[in-house]
Amino acid sequence: IVGGEFTNVENQPWFATIYQKNSGGAPPFFKCGGSLISPCWVASAAHCFIHHPKKENYVVYLGQSKRNSYNPGEMKFEVEQLIFHEDFSEESLGYRNDIALLKIRTSTGQCAQPSRSIQTICLPPRFGDAPVGSDCEITGFGQESHPDYLFPMNLKMSVVKLISHEECKQPHYYGSEINYKVLCAADPEWKTDACHGDSGGPLICNIDGRLTLSGIVSWGEGCAKKNKPGVYTRVSSFLRWIQSHIGEENGLAF
């Protein structure tokens, strides 16, 4: 996250930290963010996993304010299922259908348990997004500037505004790379944004008084760069897909 502020995971209790295991015995390294959408399922971005698509490669934590260290109240999970959107694709500039689902379970076969630092996030109503200009929160352990190579140890969050598809499709923005299955969001002053390493994390908007997972951090040109907003997978366009894999009986909250 460029700009913004450091925060405690209690402010974003649905935030999941996803690590990729090392083959050589070194500790797992931070890979991407995610969001707990039901007790046993985390939503993230397909592009995080597409080059190493085996579920055994990953470990997921909930309740972490500080990455790669022990956080009181955290929960650690293996990935029981790793599902990519079948129409995921890498385009010239960005991605399409950039969404993945991870079924999580502890070593004793448990799903997530609610606490001050672990909570699910609501899914948006079908095709019901917050209006253009809404303030939405982003969260992650991604880089604080671009180009950078260090990821902060502590969780950050910031606020960006939803911008219209018309604005985002302008030639000097992203032109035809933008379709209606993504959302664009940016800071009016181009001072804060998601960045490399925030992929898969949440774009949380308030819809009818409920905090809702409206977007999944997907791509952007640079970070906090003028006329280059952040591009997010539009979750309200994938509700049927999500439900087809998770179903309603698993505590999804629409």
């Binding site: 007790p39 609610p114 606490s115 630092s117 699910t120 905090l211 309603e248 505590g251 629409f254």
Partner: peptide, 22 residues
């Protein structure tokens, strides 16, 4: 049909644990 925000197993989607104001 929007299910209630209180879904199974004690989760309340989108709710943050507000700090008690001492």
């Amino acid at each position: 049909k929007p299910s209630s925000a209180v879904d199974q197993q004690g989760f309340q989607c989108g709710q943050k644990a507000l700090r008690p104001r001492f």
